[in-house]
Simulated assay, not measured.
Amino acid sequence: MKELVARIDAAACDALLQEVALEYKPGLVCPSRNGSHADMNCSTFKRSIQALQGYFGECFAAGVQGAEFRTLQRLGLSAEQAMLKTTAGVNTHKGAIFLMGLLAGAAGVQFREYGCFEPIGLGRLVAAKWGVNILLAGVQDQVLCADTPTHGRRVRDAFGLPGAREQAAEGFPVLFWTTVPQLRWALSEGLSQEQAQLHALVCTIGKLPDTNLAHRGGLKGLQWAQGKVDQFLAEGGVFAPGWRLRAEHLCEQFEAQWLSPGGSADLLSAALFVQALVQVNSELPRFMTARQ
């Protein structure tokens, strides 16, 4: 079991590394640019990911043990503190800690019940098993932190947009209806990993009510961002010749508006983790043999 826990943890951390290594992400930190951020860069993200090593494996193990949401919540809060310590207070992966921690825990539940993974069903499992408690925890946080509301809460209160908790309680609909299917489709069409990942990201930006965008630019900022990626896709996206130049121009436009679709980036990382679980499924006989 230790080997499988380590494999799940490595798959999640690798997904985060793939996301930060992807170029031409509009408004986001890339290897060649900092996007719409003055307080972080690629190195900041890599240090953060290193600090998170072990966390996703712990969430998976907790799911295998039948843990309740409060256990995953405690693990997530501890991981968040480790992140903030290594980044000197910069929030690099708070959304991914929440999202991918739940998915790793759900993968543990699936392994406990079926001895394998059904990656596409992870969202439904999160909603069914922990959805109510996720929302209740959000209400409790509102009471305890009434004087210091989060960006997501401010956006939800101001514009009525669903935040990360609401998305989780609904089973991450954008992740499983847009990000994962678009990533898989692009790969099936013969695109490179770089192209497929960027395609999945821009499709996600166009669908997700990203509270990071709304926090910075209000509803107009969110609508502007979605309009720009829709235009990019209408012009052929990564499928059309010259896509890198158009993607770079899109980055410049987002940076000029100082907008960053951080929630969409989290969904791309999660989609890469979901895809990795397909590969882990094929490796399970080896892990089972090692356990014997």
Rank of each mutant, 00 (worst) to 15 (best):
V180K: 04
L191V: 09
E189H: 10
K25E: 09
L103F: 04
M1N: 09
A12D: 04
C30H: 08
G89H: 10
V278C: 05
A214G: 07
Q253I: 11
R165G: 06
R112G: 07
D157R: 11
C59K: 00
P241W: 06
Q292S: 15
V5P: 00
G95Q: 06
E194H: 11
A6K: 12
P285R: 11
M40D: 06
P241A: 11
F98C: 06
T178A: 07
V109L: 15
A88K: 13
R33Q: 14
A15S: 12
S260E: 01
C42G: 12
G57N: 02
I8Y: 11
M40A: 09
I120Q: 14
G101H: 08
Q18S: 12
L135S: 03
K228P: 00
G95D: 02
I205C: 05
L84V: 01
A6P: 00
T86P: 02
A169R: 03
K220G: 15
E3G: 08
V5I: 15
E235A: 15
G263K: 06
A225C: 00
M83D: 09
F239N: 08
R153F: 13
P119G: 05
A265N: 03
Q223A: 15
G63I: 08
G115L: 10
V143A: 15
S32T: 15
A240P: 01
